[in-house]
Nucleic acid binder design. Structure first.
Lengths: 341, 341
DNA sequence: TTGTAGGCGTTATCAC
DNA sequence: GTGATAACGCCTACAA
């Protein structure tokens, strides 16, 4: 079992100084004489003393840990968000526990409870697509713990949020297509229980309307799983069966767009000559497919970093009983025009 | 601040039963009468009592948490490994803290200490490419805590390991190329401080030798960063300046191979007609590029799952003072032959 | 079957 | 500037 780790009691015994003084010295409190502090720090270093974080947590009700729930980590976008989260957390001496909801609201609720039980100091959450999430959140989160929602949010849930303007990003993309001369633009969207699916759809629709192109609901295809290539593939097939004059597809994610690529490729439809394809998120794949895919650049690392920054700020404020109001940060997106449009 | 959470003392007070009996009842110990247990459980449920995990950790020296260090989470392979880790951990009631070393040994050491300090019950580690890692590991890990190495291991470090047979996988891939008729096969490898770079290189070399193709060190290009498309691009350029008769490239990762694709594409070299390209890892990208890339399938989710399974097993054994010996699990790989070879 | 008591290692309050 | 003491909430010998 190795040697037992040094505790504050060991130091106290060896130095014949009380625990309280030692604790203060270690934590850099001012009311310790320089001489005693030096002595204490010296022995602490020698004995490799590290305060036991668990005992400290028990006492202070702080764990220096934050919890993160995302639908999935095997995901170009979320993995980058997590990268940002971990780095920002580490810079502030927080550790990060990660959980995956798999887009299942009940799992999400369970995991929220796990985190609460673990007494994380705060929670970062990108919500699942299922309905009833708000009620579940309310049920679990009784204002004792800061929560920041990012990317996939519940508009009506009262907390800080870090998002992009999905509607505007979609609007911009579709406007671009229209200005390029495309007129029969299909939308491969997501299920409309998710806010970002809704917003991207709304942006698509608005762009058509603002450019005097009639909105046709038949041109909207729902992809049950935003990140499933196969959904895009299947809908491409369906679409071509139902329509002959489509000239562009605006997809809700790059992976759906890749599915479209696959089917078009199979039946020899040329992108963008026959039909253009616009993706969303700028996954690595979008830059290596042929033709290179036009897409929306969605800040990911920054989103994770910003959400964590806000969360930690709120944690600190809450600890010190400082009032704060919830923030809503909208990160900028941009169009990346490549060869598919 | 909301209502304070229920503690064992609250239950004790309300029921006029001692804390110990309550504790036993909650934990399902046998020496509690059915009647008392029922009563306790009922109130516990009503008051939504959940044992305070921190207090419990302080007492039992168990945190039900495991730490994971990988070079990066923005990584198709590692993200899948992490998926496997999180799922297996969750199934066993463990939570997972994730850290990224960024291939920096000093950061890695710091993070190991963070985890130790956090008193995680065990550590899952995929080691950075830098040298001196073993010494650092030895320094930090004094046998008090189980560690399982996966994928990127230190051969000589004494602990359980979950890996693939990199040498064999590389050997198989290169043999395949040779049997397909390719003769001037270059290797785009990694830095030789990393065990898997070494092994993949060794497999490449062995395959040549066993097939009576002279090994030529000039055909081996080192890519400082295994996962940098640009490295592959640059080396492809360099290679074609130095050699005119290469007919195949065996790359250490799919991303390096993608870099090769990019350069070949730029100067109009046809894959596989002019030069074949073989990747490694079966990242998502490899299946969507044109032409679809032949690669080595490397179990990822399974690797995470298996490593976690072993780790948790060792944690349990250690807790119960049961002897155990370290395992070395080699997961099977397979060739995925697509259009690039 | 139930209860008592001590301790896990800190930190905070208050007295000196 | 320093120290005694209690408390955070739980677990577990051991006693009753």
């Amino acid at each position: 079992m190795g040697l037992k780790r040094t505790t504050i009691n060991d130091l106290a015994a060896k130095l014949k100084i009380s625990k309280s003084t030692i604790s203060k010295a270690i934590k850099g409190y001012p009311d310790v004489s320089e001489k005693t502090r030096k002595k204490i720090l010296k022995l602490a270093k020698k004995l490799n003393y590290k305060p036991n974080s668990i005992a400290s947590s028990l006492r202070t009700h702080q764990t220096k840990t934050i919890g993160v729930i995302v639908p999935s980590v095997v995901h170009d976008f979320f993995s980058k968000v997590i990268d940002g989260i971990i780095q920002e957390a580490e810079n502030n001496n927080y550790l990060v526990i990660i959980l995956q909801s798999g887009e299942q609201a009940d799992l999400e609720e369970k995991q929220l409870n796990l985190l609460k039980n673990k007494q994380v100091d705060g929670i970062l959450l990108s919500v699942s697509n299922e309905t009833g999430v708000k009620e579940r959140l309310n049920k679990v989160l009784e204002k004792g713990i800061p929560v920041v929602l990012f990317d996939k949010i519940i508009k009506s849930f009262d907390c800080s949020k870090v998002i992009i303007d999905d509607k505007k990003a979609a609007y911009d993309a579709v406007c671009y297509l229209i200005h390029k001369g495309y007129k029969r633009i299909a939308h491969f969207g997501g299920v409309l229980t998710a806010q970002n699916s809704i917003d991207r759809f709304l942006g698509y629709k608005q762009a058509l309307i603002d450019n005097n192109i009639p909105y046709n609901p038949d041109l909207v295809y729902v992809n049950p799983n935003n990140d499933d290539i196969n959904d895009g593939y299947l809908n491409a097939q369906k679409m071509l069966k139902e329509h002959t004059n489509i000239d562009a597809v605006f997809a809700i994610t790059d992976l759906i767009a890749i599915g479209v690529y696959k089917y078009f490729n199979k039946i020899n439809i040329k992108i963008p000559e026959d039909i253009a394809v616009f993706g969303f998120s700028n996954w690595l794949v979008s830059s290596v497919v042929t033709p290179k895919m036009s897409t929306v650049n969605q800040p990911s690392f920054e989103m994770g970093k910003k959400a964590t920054e806000i969360l930690i700020d709120e944690i600190k404020k809450m600890n010190n009983d400082i009032e704060f109001s919830f923030q809503k940060v909208v990160l900028p997106t941009s169009l990346i025009i490549r060869e598919s449009t």
